[in-house]
Every structure is written in C-alpha cells, then in structure tokens.
Design a protein around this nucleic acid. Structure first.
Lengths: 198, 198
DNA sequence: TACGTTATCGTCACTGACTGACGTAAACAA
DNA sequence: TTGTTTACGTCAGTCAGTGACGATAACGTA
C-alpha cells in the first residue's frame, strides 16, 4: 500500500508533463501565432517527440482547454452544494460566478488563453466538446430543479443560453481590462434571468 | 449587352456545381459517415478532381453550411422590415421564426443536415464562423434597438443567447419528429424572453 | 478557319495534423 | 540478473488543404 504523494512509480519516468507542454504551447502561440506553430516545435521545446505530444493531448488545440475542463469539474461540484431555497436562475448565476474567482497571479495566463480562444478560428473550432460539457453541467442542474430530463427544452436551453451569456461576458472582459471577470459574468447572467428586459 | 438568364459565358464551362457537390456529400456522409468519407470520393462522384472540390468549398465540412449561410442573409434582410413598435425580444422571436418556415419537400434534407451537424464532432467544430454570423445579425438589431454598439454586453449577449436557444430547439426538433420546427423555436425564444421564469 | 481571350479544370509537389505498429529506454521488483 | 511496467522514439502511412503551372473548352474576332 502506498500513501498519497510521489509514490514509488514503476516504469520509465515521463520526460515532460501536460502542464509543461501547456506553458510552452501558450508561449509559442502568443509569440508566433497558432497556425504558424507546429506540434513539432512545441514537442522539441519540451525535449520530446511530436508523437509524445499526441499521447498527452489528442490535438494541437486541446492543449489550451486543459484548465477549462477543470473548471467544468468545479462547476459540477459547486452545483452539488446549492441552497434549495434559492431560485433556479439565481442559483445558476451565483454558482457560475463562484467558480470564476481567480487568483491574481493566474489572471494574466487566463487572459492570454481566452484571447487566443476568442481570436483564432482553429481554436474556436476546437471549443465544441468543451463547451458542451459545461452546458450539460448547467442543464443537469436545471433539469433537477424543474423535475424534467436534462435533455428537455427548458433545461437544454438554459444550459446553452447560460454559456452563451458567459461567453459574451468573457469576450468583453478580455477586450476591455477595466473590471473583474465576475462583474461581467454577474451582469450578463442577471440580464439573461431578466429576459433582457429594460 | 446580355439579358438575364443563362447568358453566354466565356471560358470552360464548370463540370459541376456547389449544389451537386452538396447533394453528393450529404448522401455519402449519411451513408458512410463523415470521417469515413474522403473529399476524393465526393469529387470522384461528381466527376471532378479533389482540387476542384476545394475551389468550390474551403473545407470538407463547409459543404454542409451552404444553406445555413443563406439563412443568415435572410435573417439580416428580415430584420430590416420590423415594426418599430414591437418590443425587441418579440421582434427577434417573430423574425427568427419567420425565416425558418420551410417547404415540406425541403424538410427531409434539412433534417439530415442538422442531424449530421448535431452528431458529428468534426462538423460541430466547423460551426463557429457560421454561428458567429448568425449571432451578429441578431446583435446588430439589438444594438440598434438599445442604441448601443453591437459589441456591448447586452447586444452581444442577446445575439449569442438567441442562437443558443434556437440550437436547443433545433436539436429537439431533429430528435423528436412530432411538430413543426417553428413551434420549437417559438417556445424556446419565449422562454428566453421570460428569463426562463416559471 | 485560325487565333487570342477567358474561366475552369487537372496534375503535381508539398506541408502538417494525426494514427498504428513496433521496438527501445528507464525505472522498480523479485 | 531477470522480468515487469511505463513511457518514449521511429517509421510508415492517411488525409485535409495549398500553391504553382500547364491543359481544356468554351467564346469572340479577324
């Protein structure tokens, strides 16, 4: 039996890590552009072959979605501890905002990553499965609250429109740099819950 | 001077047409799957080389977005003739619904195309620029109504959430086959405008 | 009929993402 | 030392997509 921590591992030790590849890729993408950067360059920078890169990530673009996917996990977890008395759309807004508090030292990286995702067509194209998981987290919660299957019209629409509103907030936050991300998210989700009524 | 119609053309006549390639592709995709179908097969079926395919469409996936892009044009045009007295979200709903009336003989093809788009990852990945244009059409209208730039938070969020709600309606319409597409769209957009309140 | 113009097509060579098969390297365990 | 485990490298291959360039097939004009 092994305690948690760097337990004794068996085989050949990894020559790199997902995190290292992510940082190298982020640097090269911002420096030279996504399309102009080859997987071979990223791998070489990490001292591995391009074949190894594809053992860590299933595509060149996937390297930028690592953190986003972890946020989806956090979102699912946060929906588990929601006050039952809170109205549904308020609960969604507060939960989404709560998992989007970032430490000051992480904001710069988040910004560059989201700027890339928002501006490079090849990266926008890679978004679908990740967005889908995020939406499903919200749809599942909405489905429970409404006592409907998560694939019914209301839960499905709530999941998708919630992400859509958040993406609008994200984009403005990346473009301007004048306020905290959570301020934008809160405003966008309040607008959604009000039906965009004036 | 030439009257309208099949005017005398100068060079070598085209060996195929976008429409022919679209129908062939749609057939092969549904028959053998999108990933299993090569561009060369589509081109061969039309009697041209694969190089010619890429002169008609900028990617293998683009062949399925032809009609969707035309709907975007229709949407923009329809927003030009909206009663100024109609409340904004009602105007958006009625406009979107109005451009989604399809002739009975076109419904089957629409369904297969949307089923492919909704189920094949590679096709979902190709959606971004097309969805973007659709969203911008709505954002532009919302921007005018709210006297804000279309890139401001409300117009942007309205454009994106409107598409998100419509996509939920589309998916359910494709999955079930029990009612007209416009019924689903109307319900989804009413839900959006009400803030999903019960 | 011959020749130039024009628009489209085919061929070829090439880049780069991604995959499967297979052998190798580096760690630990018995 | 030998075996097991895990990760890695190499190689060959498929396929999407691009640029360059020459070949075709229509028309117009002399």
């Amino acid at each position: 039996m092994s305690i948690s921590g760097p337990a004794a591992r068996r085989g050949r030790p990894p020559a790199t890590s997902p995190r290292e590849l992510e940082l190298i890729a982020l640097h090269l993408f911002t420096e030279n552009g996504f399309d102009e950067t080859t997987v071979e360059q990223i791998a070489a920078e990490a001292g591995v072959s391009s074949r190894t890169f594809f053992r860590y990530f299933e595509s060149k673009a996937a390297v930028l979605w690592h953190d986003f996917d972890r946020e989806v996990d956090a979102l699912c977890a946060a929906f588990g501890h929601v006050d039952d008395d809170l109205p549904m759309m308020d609960a969604i807004r507060e939960t989404v905002v709560s998992v989007n508090h970032y430490r000051a030292e992480d904001v710069a990286e988040l910004r560059t990553r989201m700027h890339l995702i928002g501006s490079v067509p090849a990266l926008q194209a890679s978004a679908a499965p990740h967005y889908d998981a995020w939406e499903r987290a919200v749809s599942a919660f909405a489905g429970e609250r409404l006592r409907q299957p998560s694939g019914a019209l209301y839960p499905l629409a709530i999941g998708r429109t919630t992400l859509a509103a958040c993406r609008a907030a994200f984009d403005l936050w990346v473009e301007r740099a004048d306020a905290d991300l959570t301020v934008y998210l809160d405003e966008a989700l309040r607008a959604l819950a009000s039906g965009f009524g004036t």
